[in-house]
Design a protein around this nucleic acid. Structure first.
Lengths: 157, 157
DNA sequence: TATTGTTATACTCTATAACTATA
DNA sequence: TATAGTTATAGAGTATAACAATA
């Protein structure tokens, strides 16, 4: 049985230790940012093959669960400006995953739907995501820990 | 006693409800991002008068607790590229908060210190931050909840 | 008048390459 | 050769203003 090689002592480790102790221990925003960046980095590497960014995935999920909604509605829920949402949804449309169907009830609006290809693609993406999610849950220490985390995060939002 | 006016039912609320239930309930990364953005937004509004961004504050705290370190060391711990750290620390230097003292041990390096003005400024900033932190802790439900959150976040990092 | 989608634009943050002066 | 600081630059993400078509 091989031992893990010990990490080399480096100045940055000393400083990191200092950052994590003493007067700076309780910086919630800082720890939140580091954790979020770490999870997003994981997401990017896992979804690299699918060419899906976090925003793309959330848009696909939201359209799938709420078909026929206007661009403005989907964008608002995700906290994306409608001006920036245009580029996002056009990219998904060019890949044949999303359809922008002109609404006959309101000729200004586009109703968003997934294509058949989009549904199939999302099914695969959801499976990939579920695997990642299970790994995160394992790291947290189980389902109960996940629920605790989401509850605490909601109180900050 | 007046009742709060009920929030108007809007399409976005319906969609948000859909997002928070069903198949998309457990997206840890999404919830993490929303909470982080919310806390950073709070930070920006609270520190607007001090013209301090989150990265600025963390740099000041780190220099104060680890005086004499090189730029590269501080930058690395914070996850900032040393190229981008230059602009950051120069800004703090122009405001008279930080000194870049050429190291005589290594003529390539700058040793970072806070000026007297920087120390005073940081003392004030720390007080402001502590107030914000206490508010976050209250929202979480107390010290124990904060400890639980930081522990869970560490497992994701 | 207000809203939907859109374009244009700008600002911040982040990432890489390349240079200089030292080591 | 490698490292510290620096400059230049490019790419995301995000913000606002303004326009045409429609409500």
């Amino acid at each position: 049985m091989r031992r893990e090689p010990p990490p080399p002592p480096s100045p940055s480790r000393e400083i990191e230790a200092a950052l994590r102790t003493g007067a700076t221990t309780g910086i919630i925003g800082y720890r939140l940012r580091r954790a979020q960046l770490s999870v997003f980095q994981k997401f990017l590497s896992v979804f690299d093959e699918l060419k899906l960014r976090p925003a793309d995935y959330s848009v696909l999920v939201l359209i799938a669960d709420n078909p026929g909604r206007k661009q403005t509605e989907i964008a608002e829920v995700l906290g994306v400006k409608r001006a920036n949402f245009v580029t996002l949804v056009h990219g998904l449309e060019e890949r044949g995953l999303v359809e922008r169907i002109p609404s006959h009830a309101d000729k200004r609006a586009n109703a968003l739907h997934l294509t058949a290809a989009g549904e199939a693609f999302l099914a695969h993406a959801r499976a990939v995501h579920e695997t990642m999610e299970q790994e995160l849950i394992a790291r947290l220490g189980g389902e109960k820990a996940r629920k605790t985390l989401l509850d605490l995060l909601d109180r900050l939002t």
